[in-house]
Design a protein around this nucleic acid. Sequence first.
DNA 1: CTAACTAAACCTA
DNA 2: TAGGTTTAGTTAG
Length: 174
Amino acid sequence: MERAVIETLAGFVGLSWSRFGLVALNLPTSCLIDAETELQAVLEGLKVRSQSDCQAPLADFDLAKLEKKLNEYFHGKRVDFSLPVDFRHYTDFQKTILKRVQEVSWGQMVSYGQIAAQAGIPRGSRAVGGAVGVNRILLVIPCHRVIAHNGTLGGFGYGLEWKRKLLKLEGISL
DNA sequence: CTAACTAAACCTA
DNA sequence: TAGGTTTAGTTAG
């Protein structure tokens, strides 16, 4: 597992990846230490559920390219973060849901209920909320684009201000 | 058992 | 028609 902190125009973004893809990507923080601390906490949280991650050689991961995309994103540009993701730390259900969320493109929104319906669980909206709630790969898996059915924000583990801010970058104000 | 990023079906007045 | 209650579905601690 590799890790890094990228300095973007919105702050320090901590991230981690394995040979399978991204493991974590945090929201920007205003100082480097916070980004490192948060990344450490996230990785520890995932470690519990992870299997032997042993000698994982680094995939040819293009940090510079990601840095460029992040800056464009925070600049308000339409960006497509189509990067491979390491889903090993998630349950099958969570993986199914997160993969669906990953398909929601910039500026689009879906409701928890719609995702649930797509996954074949018409009454699973709340379960979807639970699944996106454990997403540790922000932006790349855009769980901020999942909102409540009546057009309201719904929830967000990192604070609704963040959810509102991210959507606003994509031209949506709620 | 509960809390956590929900929503629809059912009452009830 | 509006407003309150119940229930469904997942998962970690």
